[in-house]
Design a protein around this nucleic acid. Structure first.
Lengths: 139, 139
DNA sequence: CCGGATCCGTTTCGATACTG
DNA sequence: CAGTATCGAAACGGATCCGG
């Protein structure tokens, strides 16, 4: 019976809704790891992310799963391990991440390879199609 | 001399950089207010946002200004008021917000008018050009 | 009035240690 | 390996106060 706070009663504005799911420092970083960096396991995120704490990671994975952005399965190869994958809803965030990369590369100092950024800008649709293809292939 | 925390030493990944500036519950909401809702003043944000506290708002405006996403000027009309505007860097976030709207409209229940979302999808470039035009006109 | 700053109780985060 | 427990630090949220 916690008291309702401002964030609980958000408007139906799509931006507001999206930020309710993704408006924090880590969630989109996990999505990025899944989408671009072939990271799949809890351990991958823990080491590969930029130093997220284990409890925060567990919480964010739970939230992303609750939002149906991420799915958790047993690793068919290794029975004691779990594998996280993006759902269709999750992979649909690709355009958002791509625009974020383009924006950052333009206005901040990043380590993004200029060639990749150029591809994102010049062949956005193709780039996203490739991401989706790799995802469908189960990469 | 505060101890460095994980978030302080982020990688140069463009997503990571962007989230350092925008990875919270409110910043992008303010950008949205400026970009789509003709909100300009502290009071506008305070009442129109979804219930942000005044101290948080002040902090976010300061951060957005420090990041050169927003600019603060005196209101030429009303001497006791200030006007916030997006910078060029700020208006360049339009594609990110548009993709966020499209994603939310597809996967969540939002109050976005379907006609507008359809325009965003079918004539993305034109829609963003319009946003930019209104911004340049000083709207 | 407008644009905040301050105070303070509550919530969340972050680092580390620990467990099934 | 994949988390949970704990605890101090930081951020948030609401109310109120203040300067111009």
């Amino acid at each position: 019976m916690t008291a309702p706070t401002a964030r609980d009663q958000r408007s139906g504005c799509p931006i507001s809704i999206a930020l309710e799911l993704l408006g924090d420092a880590w969630s989109l970083l996990i999505v990025r790891d899944l989408m671009f960096k072939e990271r799949r396991t809890y351990k991958d995120f823990l080491e590969g992310g930029e130093g997220i704490a284990s409890n925060i990671l567990a919480d964010r994975l739970r939230r992303l799963e609750a939002a149906a952005i991420v799915r958790k399965q047993r690793d068919p190869a290794d029975a004691r391990s779990f594998v996280y994958r993006l759902t269709a809803k999750g992979i649909d965030l690709a355009p958002v991440l791509v625009e974020l990369v383009i924006w950052s590369a333009r206005h901040e100092v990043t380590d993004a390879p200029p060639s990749v950024v150029k591809t994102m800008r010049n062949d956005r649709t193709g780039f996203i199609a490739d991401v989706r293809k790799r995802w469908q292939a189960g990469a």
